[in-house]
Design a protein around this nucleic acid. Structure first.
Lengths: 208, 208, 208, 208
DNA sequence: CATGAATGAGGATTCATTCAT
DNA sequence: TATGAATGAATCCTCATTCAT
């Protein structure tokens, strides 16, 4: 058992790091990576400029850490809910539902991810892809493959549709209205996406 | 009628302006707006730094002009082809087909528009919305409304679906592989989008 | 024939560069390379901070340019006077005499060279060696080799003695009293050095 | 007599201080005073940053202490050996021999002294002069004065030659090859210096 | 119209130093 | 005594912008 002071010290360091990441998320979301200002980040976190550099070796590394931390929380949040669902159709709905919920709870983080994806820095893009790989695999296998096998979905190109679903998801997320609310109704987006892939023997009228 | 020298002078000025815009498109696409460098732009266009300021009052104004010019060409290119089609379904296919064609011919311009949309500057976003308004209206009225009225599409929320179609289009455009090729097959994207809205009494097998 | 304005522009640029180098010499001499401040250099030269970067890509490059320029002037100044002398002994005297004269006229430049040689940056050292190579070769060949061949000097290790002569010269130069005067009398230094190598009437063989 | 714990405490403190000085010597030698990093020094010594400040009030004071400690060891090492010799010529040889031996055993310390002498900080220079005063006095009196009085050396300006001998010594020391070896052979340097002052068989009076 | 020298605000980063534990 | 988190002054460098030619 570590000495109390040791435990406390680590907690404080962890707490500081977290506050810096939170402040960085806000700043990067509002100003973009290049426009973000390290001094404002540390001030917003309640520290002096230098403290950022006690935790992250550079602005670039801070961004990478933020991407990693955000992606880990995001993937974890969505996957838990997706995998709790019994069948592919419900899972797809959860993918959108939980995804939008995460974005509404963490609008700044979401913006950072999206701007990393559409911004000019290839290293950020790669980092995002890596960090979200598990989510993409789950969509492809546990939702699309399973859905096609089970007769819920039409035969489709798994990778193309995975990309399209992520595209629809990310695109919807970035259309935030005032207050950070997602302007598109999740259920409408889900319906649209589901109808793009669902098998259609007979009319259905049990939608969300 | 202006004197020949006048005409020549205007032509030269127009030519200079065009070369500056082309160079700016490449630079903004590669570096992002904040990372773009006015000196590099002028050098790439074959001029000295100061020349940019003879044609555009600021870097910001240059970006706005580039958005306008690109959007005008883009909208014109797509609308000509969309409106040449006789029915909503074909028009929607043309929206994607012509849109992807424009992006493949003008990858730098496309990147600029997309980064403006997903970047932190709200003024750029507004400018893009304004410049593309005519395209959005055409989708909403001449494709969706017409398609619903004609029984091609299910009753849908026109504005939501317009947003979703643009989202799918833009998202697909930004997934460029090496060489600027769009990675997603236009016909697959079109099929996906069409199936999301099409009315489905009976199975159809006449797709793209 | 270039246009007058062109000629003037080049003259101004050359003049600016020279003023910056002069100011840099003073600053580097007084503060050392690391302690030197680019802003102070440009201010002392009568320009704003950024102007330095219109002429030199970095502080490091400015230092290298200063070493080169100083060494070229130094070597030229000394070699002209050394080579005007008819015999090795007089040439050696001129080496010290002209060398000390250059240092007294350019104390800041001399300090920069010396601090480059004794400072921690190996690239600066290499640059100094390269820039003074011609002078070292002249000492070794046109003074020492010639003097040994002509019976003025004892048989000596040419390279060792070249190094020792430079050492004595540089060491003496760095012992500046108030006002930048070299504290050691050139003639005393010359006598000391000459006696270290001159042929004696009878051989002695009791050395270390 | 202090209590054992007291004695131990002092030993530990002394040991710590010594390790810090050793690490500082390496760092100052490699990076120069301004480029040296207090954190690296403490890490290399096996302590945290703050510990340096428990032993030295500032980086500047650490440098001064290092100069003092090095000079004291250096002067002691050389003087012991010089004063063990019976006559001025042997003493002068020992001055160079022991001096070079000290430098080869303590290359980092030697570099620090030399960079202090040729660097921009006058306070360091003064400190070096003060700390080496006893050595200079010994050269001037116990070697040069004694040698002139005993007929070994020509009548010379004692202070000038003292300065020249130190110059030759320091200059030779700073020409370190790979591995910290002094590149100039001590015996050659000694011969050169001795011949510069030794009495010749017959007077010459054709000098400068 | 084209030029490019000059400007100076702005920002990332370093690091000696302090001090509470 | 040892620690290391926090500090903030200091500095190199970038680059949009101006303007005289």
């Amino acid at each position: 058992m570590p000495r109390p002071t040791e435990a406390t010290r680590e907690e404080v360091a962890s707490e500081t790091r977290q506050r810096l990441l939170d402040a960085a998320a806000e700043e990067f979301a509002r100003e973009g990576y290049v426009g973000a200002n390290i001094n404002r980040i540390s001030q917003a976190a309640g520290f002096a400029k230098g403290t950022v550099y006690n935790y992250f070796p550079s602005k670039h590394a801070l961004m990478l850490a933020l991407i990693d931390e955000t992606a880990a929380a995001h993937v974890d949040f969505v996957l838990r809910r997706v995998e709790a669902e019994p069948d592919p159709v419900r899972r797809l709905k959860q993918f959108f539902g939980a995804g939008f919920a995460f974005v509404e709870r963490n609008p700044a983080r979401a913006r950072v991810i999206i701007s990393a994806l559409y911004g000019p820095d290839d290293e950020f893009k790669t980092q995002v892809y890596e960090a979200y790989k598990l989510l993409l695999v789950t969509i492809a296998q546990d939702i699309l493959d399973a859905g096609v096998a089970g007769g819920d979905f039409r035969p489709i190109d798994r990778d193309v549709v995975t990309a399209l679903l992520m595209t629809v998801y990310l695109g919807s997320c970035s259309q935030l209205g005032p207050g950070g609310k997602i302007w598109l109704d999740p259920s409408q987006v889900t319906t649209f996406a589901l109808d793009g892939i669902r098998l259609r023997e007979r009319p259905r009228d049990d939608e969300v």
